[in-house]
């Protein structure tokens, strides 16, 4: 497999992770009442790859 195909294959993984992260961050900023401090969720979303945004959506969001 040549280099370009490999990069093409890897790009979607980063894109999806990035999209989830941005999505979670934008939602966090708009969230008037998250379940816990905003800065903490910000760190969790950015630092913990993949699991961070999921944790935020499941626990942190509180369905506003």
């Amino acid at each position: 497999m040549d280099q370009t195909t490999m990069i093409m294959a890897l790009v979607p993984i980063f894109l999806i992770q990035l999209a989830l992260m941005i999505f979670a961050l934008v939602d966090l900023v708009k969230n008037p009442n998250p379940n816990g401090p905003k800065w903490m969720w910000g760190i969790i979303i950015v630092v913990i790859n993949l699991i961070g945004p999921i944790l935020y959506f499941v626990i942190g969001r509180k369905n506003y």
């Binding site: 294959a9 890897l10 979607p12 993984i13 999806i16 989830l20 939602d27 959506f57």
Partner: peptide
């Protein structure tokens, strides 16, 4: 409105891609 319709598929797609990669 709670975005489940977006993030749940995203996670499964990721799981599907990450394993072979």
């Amino acid at each position: 409105r709670n975005y489940k319709i977006y993030w749940i598929p995203a996670i499964f797609i990721l799981l599907g891609i990450v394993e072979p990669t």
